[in-house]
Design a protein around this nucleic acid. Structure first.
Lengths: 216, 216
DNA sequence: AAATGTGAAGAGGTTCACAGCG
DNA sequence: CGCTGTGAACCTCTTCACATTT
């Protein structure tokens, strides 16, 4: 039963680019730039994004530019914020508070003002009950009890690989609709749940592949 | 001047998959499985990888299966290791030893036996001169002096965004050919350098985008 | 009989080039 | 004139389906 999709839908691959546009435009706002052309934005974004690509990506979302002039920076930032869901704050639950979980929490708390750590879980008895920046660290076993009242939208998995699948399922049961997974394991979850996996070993192996090839 | 490429070249998008195959096959080895079919491997890998996809990916690298039987697991692992550059050890330099750098170092040291932390740099005076698991933490200013003798192939950037570009250029000048970047900034480097960027905010925004949409 | 390897068909995404509009 | 917005061409990757081999 193929759900009829809007005539124009941003391609999956365009999403990360939209975020890059958003970030580059925020820089432009800080510099006081008020209008930007697709070519100018392409230069800011770098990384081989063409002006045609930018216009195409934006055209899937609507019509925002002025022909002959370019795009209003503030308006574009606002529009992209809305599309990316960055026009509101988000509460995040972190499961696994070892080095990685700790690093992620710190990074988010200091650098990303839209994202707030609202729940932390770990299995280590010496951690449970302590607080991190005011957030109580709970026992993973209590996940179903603690999580529902905290209104988190996103769960971050920073536990060892063998536990990742079980943790993911519990997060989903507790109502989370999106998961960012750092464990080197493939998660099998209902399609309605959005999942992104960051796999350090995978990234490194892509680099070693390139280093191992003689030609570019 | 378009360099003529080999008649068959693994597509860029297949590389991360090859790594997933490698990981799944290592699991199979541990279980004592000696032969696997493309369908069986697809089941192990999960995440919507089809058996046809696997056969196609492998066919770009050569002919390894036995018709009617499947693939020899040990041989396939070995072949993929070679292609991915995982048939040798790698020495890594980390720049930025805050929470994130520390977390990455710990993760790699404990979990990835092919990757070794060989150099650590930071700007904090209280860190410089101390050691982490036997590795001396050096001042970032000394990067050009210290790095060349340590024979690192890969550099990991875990510094704040404004410093990332400068650090990246210095790593490249010091001879590194591959960079894994965790700073939320676009790096502009010579094409010969392999770069992968892991952008936490970008991943989160893709999740918030999905959470903000009503339909799947 | 069973599963590979692969040409061909099909999707999906990007680039081109230009009409349209300020 | 300059830059956007967009159909069409192009290219790349995925899926299909089947001839081929053990």
């Amino acid at each position: 039963m193929p759900r009829r999709r809007k005539p124009k839908d941003a391609s999956a691959l365009s999403l990360p680019r939209l975020f890059l546009y958003h970030r580059a435009l925020e820089d432009a706002v800080r510099e006081g730039t008020s209008v930007v052309t697709s070519g100018g934005l392409a230069t800011r974004v770098g990384r081989g994004v063409s002006s045609a690509q930018i216009r195409k990506d934006l055209s899937y979302l609507g019509t925002f530019g002025r022909r002959g002039q370019g795009y209003d920076v503030v308006m574009l930032v606002r529009m992209l914020s809305r599309v990316l869901g960055l026009d509101r704050d988000w509460r995040i639950a972190i499961v696994g508070f070892g080095y990685l979980g700790h690093a992620l929490a710190t990074f988010l708390e200091y650098r990303e003002e839209k994202f707030h750590i609202a729940a932390i879980f770990d299995v280590a008895k010496e951690l449970v009950g302590t607080r991190w920046h005011g957030v109580r660290i709970s026992q993973v076993d209590d996940l179903e009890k603690v999580l529902p009242v905290l209104d988190c939208g996103i769960g971050v998995i920073a536990v060892p690989a063998p536990e990742a699948q079980a943790v993911a399922q519990r997060l989903v049961k507790a109502g989370l609709g999106a998961i960012l997974n750092f464990a080197p394991a493939t998660l099998r979850l209902p399609a309605r749940v959005a999942v992104r996996s960051i796999d350090l070993a995978s990234e490194l192996s892509i680099l070693t592949h390139h280093l191992s090839r003689p030609g570019t």
